[in-house]
Simulated assay, not measured.
Amino acid sequence: MSTHLRIGFIPLVDAAALIVAVDKGFAAAEGLDIELVREVSWSNVRDKLNIGLFDAAHLLAPVAIASSLGLGHVKVPIAAPFNLGLNGNAITVSPALHAALMEEIDGDRFDPMATARALARVVAKRKRSGAEPLTFGMTFPFSTHNYQLRFWMAAGGVDPDEDVQLVVLPPPYMVDSLANGHVDAFCVGAPWNSVAVDLGIGHILHFVSDILLSAVEKVLAVRQTWSEQHPDLVTALVRAHLRAAEFIEQPANRPEVARMLSSPERIGVDAGVIQRTLDGRLKIAPDGTMRESKRYLLVGREAAARPDPVQAAWLYAQMVRWGQTPLRPDALKTAMAVFRPDLYDAAIGRAAGTVNAIGAFAGPPFDPNDVAGHLAAFKIGRWKP
C-alpha cells in the first residue's frame, strides 16, 4: 500500500527531480503516492510546510535555515536530506541597463568583477544626474538570489542597501516586472531569465556560476519532527529523487524531461527553453547570442544532490553579513545541522562524495570555522565585529 504525500513546488527548472520522480514513476516504485502542489510564492511554500499542509517542499536553501533559526517568521526546525539543484540562477538586466554597463565596462563582460565595477560607475553617474536608484528584483529576503546579487554588487563597490533598491518578486512575476519597467534587472532561477531574453526584453548578464562556482540553490525540505517520525519515508524520498536526478542528467533523456516539465500544471513554459537550461546552453541576448556552461545547473552530477553543511554555513554567513541575524556559534551550528548528508548517505546505503567548494569570485576562500574572519575581509556589509 502506498503512502500519500503532498509536496509543494514553485514552477522552476530546479524542481525537475521532484517532478520527474513523480511523473516517471520513481516515487511510486518506492511506495509513495505524491501529490505535487504548484505554488506561486516562497512564503506560501514555507508556511504550508511549517504548519503541516505539505509533508515536504521544494524550498530555497536559505529559507530552510531561516525557518530553523526563527528568522523572519515562526521557528520551525527543518531537515534537508537532498539537494534539488546547485546553481541555476542568473542575473538578467534590461536592454537599457545592459547598454549602460557595456558603455562603462573595462574588461571581459563575463567577468563579474568587471561588470560589478561598471555597475558602480553607472550608479555614480545616475546619482550625479539625480536619477532614481536602479531597482533589482529578487525572490525572497532569505534567498540565494538576494545574497548572490549583494555579493556581486558589493565586490564592485556598490552598497546594495544604500546605492540601489532590492525588491521581492515571485519568480513567475519577474518577466512582467522587467517588461513594465518596474525593475531594471533581476536574479531568478530558470526558466524565467530565458523567457525574458526570448521576449526581447532582457540580457542575461551572468550565470550564478560566474559568481559562485558551487552554490546550493533548492533543497527537498521536511520538518525535522516529521523526519524523525517517518525515517522510512525520508529514505524513500531520497531514493526516488536520486533516481530522478540521475535520469535527468542523462543527455538522451533531456527531451523527455523537458516535455514533462513544460506541461501547464508543472512549469508551463516552452520545452525548448527548458531543455536549453538542462543542457547549460542559453540564449543570453535578444540577438540570439548563445553561451554554454557545464555548471549552469547541476541536478545530480558532481555529487550535487548530497547536502553539504559547508554550504549551509556560507548561507548563514551571508545572513550575518547583511544584518539579518547576529553571528552566534550556536546559530551557526544549527544552520549547518539543517543540511543532512547523514540521511542522504543512509538512504543510498553508502557515503557519497561532496562538493563543498563555494568558489566565490571575490574574497578569501570560505572557512566555516572562521566566519568572523571571512566577513571581516569584506568592506561592504551590515555586520560589525
Results as ranks from 00 to 15, higher is better:
Val310Ser: 11
Leu32Pro: 08
Gly137Cys: 05
Ala80Phe: 06
Ala28Gln: 05
Ala179Arg: 15
Phe207Trp: 09
Asp23Ile: 02
Ala57Met: 01
Asp210Arg: 12
Met1Cys: 00
Phe9Lys: 07
Arg328Met: 12
Glu39Cys: 12
Asn180Trp: 00
Leu49Cys: 03
Ser263Gly: 10
Pro365Asn: 07
Ser2Trp: 03
Arg150Asp: 08
Asp106His: 09
Asp111Tyr: 11
Pro172Trp: 01
Thr92Glu: 13
Ala185Gly: 14
Phe366Glu: 07
Phe82Leu: 13
Ser43Asp: 08
Arg46Pro: 00
Val167Asn: 05
Phe140Lys: 02
Ala252Glu: 15
His230Val: 01
Val355Tyr: 03
Phe140Cys: 10
Val175His: 13
Ile7Pro: 01
Val219Cys: 08
Pro255Gln: 07
Val238Arg: 11
Pro11Lys: 03
Gly52Pro: 08
Lys127Ala: 15
Gly280Ile: 01
Ala28His: 06
Gly300Ile: 04
Ala154Glu: 07
Arg46Ser: 09
Leu169Arg: 14
Phe82Trp: 04
Ile91Phe: 04
Arg239Asp: 00
Ile19Thr: 10
Ala221Pro: 06
Lys75Arg: 15
Leu343Ala: 11
Ile91Tyr: 06
Pro77Ala: 01
Leu205Asp: 09
Glu228Ser: 04
Phe247Lys: 01
Leu199Arg: 15
Pro95Cys: 14
Glu302Thr: 04
Val123Asp: 06
Gly300His: 05
Val13Asp: 10
Pro62Glu: 03
Thr144Asp: 04
Leu59Val: 03
Leu297Asn: 02
Ala351Gln: 15
Val355Asp: 10
Ile10Glu: 13
Asp308Val: 06
His4Tyr: 04
Ala114Ser: 11
Val22Phe: 03
Val122Cys: 08
Ala79Ser: 15
Ala131Lys: 13
Asp184His: 15
Val338Asp: 12
Pro264Asn: 06
Leu97Ala: 07
Thr135Phe: 00
Arg328Asn: 11
Ala362Tyr: 09
Ala90Phe: 13
Leu53Cys: 00
Thr354Val: 14
Arg301Tyr: 02
Leu212Tyr: 14
Met290Ser: 10
Ala245Thr: 04
Ala221Gly: 04
Pro385Asn: 01
Val164Gln: 09
Asp270Lys: 09
Arg328Leu: 14
Pro341Trp: 03
Ala64Asp: 02
Pro264Lys: 08
Phe136Trp: 07
Asp23His: 12
Arg291Phe: 05
Arg117Lys: 15
Trp152Cys: 06
Asn253Leu: 05
Met1Gly: 05
Pro171Cys: 07
Gly349Ser: 11
Val76Asp: 06
Lys379Glu: 12
Thr235Gly: 03
Phe9Met: 05
Val310Glu: 04
Arg328Gln: 14
Ile78Gly: 01
Glu249Ser: 07
Ala352Leu: 11
Trp322Asp: 02
Glu104Tyr: 07
Thr135Tyr: 01
Arg321Pro: 02
Met336Phe: 08
Val257Ala: 06
